[in-house]
């Protein structure tokens, strides 16, 4: 474990805490894409299939359980909670997220880490995570008013994978000296998708103005 990876995991955890805080305190999920949240449930479940078969560390197991548990809880809030589900921006959250699944699965079959079920699903989860934010970014472009917690959530979510890229560079030079095409390329694509958002988010933060993404 290096500081970059720990910072990445904590940033990821913080993004989820911010999202849960928004939903629980404001009893609203306005501006949050249910489709992105559903994709994250799939990402975590297909990535952590080894949860009970491979013990890496207490930290690793605990974080996997937290990520699976919180992502399911967020989907539950947005779909079933009697108050929160009324605030879901159903009409704007229209990205056909299920269309992302077949290409990622085919790519996982073509370029798996290893040709075993768990490794194909692990690769699938890496590819899917890279594009899972698309529905959320589309929704932000359509939201006339992005609240601070939603903006912070997306920013932290993008920042976590950027920190992971630094972790991979660090590990390459200090530990493994091996190139990891699957997570590295996917991580770069994932972080690049946030570039536009990062630009407007930092600009709005510097100018103390409301965050708005050009349509």
């Amino acid at each position: 474990m290096n500081i970059f990876r720990l910072a990445g995991d904590m940033t990821h955890l913080l993004s989820i805490v911010v999202l849960l805080l928004k939903i629980r305190t404001t009893k609203s999920c306005a501006g949050i894409s249910l489709k992105t949240q559903e994709l994250y449930v799939i990402v975590f479940i297909t990535r952590y299939l080894d949860l009970f078969t491979r013990y890496v560390s207490f930290y690793n197991t605990a974080m996997k359980l937290v990520f699976i548990g919180t992502s399911v809880a967020i989907v539950w809030y947005m779909r079933l909670h009697k108050v929160v589900k009324q605030t879901y921006s159903r009409d704007e959250d229209t990205f056909k997220h299920y269309l992302l699944i077949p290409p990622c699965f085919i790519l996982a079959l073509l370029i798996p880490l290893e040709f075993t079920v768990t490794e194909i699903l692990w690769s699938f989860s890496i590819y899917l995570e890279a594009v899972a934010i698309l529905p959320q970014l589309l929704l932000l472009q359509r939201s006339s008013n992005i609240d601070n917690l939603t903006g912070s959530y997306v920013f932290l979510l993008g920042a976590y994978r950027a920190l992971y890229i630094v972790n991979w560079v660090y590990r390459f030079f200090t530990e493994t000296h091996k190139i990891r095409w699957i997570p590295w390329i996917s991580g770069l694509v994932q972080t690049a998708l946030y570039a536009d958002f990062f630009y407007y988010y930092i600009k709005s933060w510097k100018n103390h103005e409301k965050l708005r993404l050009p349509a």
Binding site: D9, N60, K64, E119
Partner: peptide
Amino acid sequence: EEDDEMHDEL
């Protein structure tokens, strides 16, 4: 096994 290094990350 080299891939363990891959799977010790979240």
